[in-house]
Simulated assay, not measured.
Amino acid sequence: MKIGKTLPYLLLVLATMLWGGNFVIGRAISGQVPPLTLAFLRWVVAVVIFLPLAWQEIGANKQEIKKCWKALVLMGLTGVAGFNTLVYVGLHYTSSINASLVNTITPLIILLLSYFLLKEPLLYNQLLGLILSISGVFLILSKGSLDVLISLSFNVGDLIVFIAVLLWGVYSIIIKYNSGRIPLYSSLAIPMVIGMFTLLPFSLWELFIAGQKVIWSMPSIAAIVYVGIFASIVAFLSWNKAVSLIGPGKAGIFLSLIPLFTTIFAIAFIGETLKWYQMVGGVLAVAGIYLATRIQTASHIKDSAF
Rank of each mutant, 00 (worst) to 15 (best):
V170T: 12
F116K: 14
V193A: 14
L132A: 13
T106C: 00
N98G: 06
V161D: 00
V165F: 08
A210V: 09
S179E: 12
Y115V: 12
P107H: 10
L117V: 14
L204M: 14
F138W: 11
G195W: 11
S220D: 10
L130H: 06
G157K: 10
Y185W: 08
D147Q: 15
L127M: 15
I109K: 07
I109P: 01
I150T: 12
S220W: 09
G157Y: 03
I160T: 14
L132V: 15
S203I: 09
S151C: 04
A189L: 06
A223D: 06
P183K: 01
F116N: 04
L91N: 09
I174C: 05
V148E: 14
L101R: 06
I190E: 09
M196F: 11
I163G: 11
K119E: 13
L167S: 06
K213P: 00
W205N: 14
G144H: 09
G144Y: 10
L204F: 14
G195S: 11
Y177R: 14
M218T: 15
V161C: 03
T104D: 00
S95V: 06
L204R: 07
S114H: 02
V156E: 11
S187F: 00
V137H: 07
L188N: 13
A189D: 08
N178L: 04
T94V: 05
V102H: 02
A189M: 09
Y124P: 04
L118D: 08
S145D: 13
V214P: 09
S145P: 02
T106K: 04
A223I: 12
S96V: 15
M192R: 05
W168I: 05
L199A: 10
I160L: 12
L91Y: 05
L200Q: 07
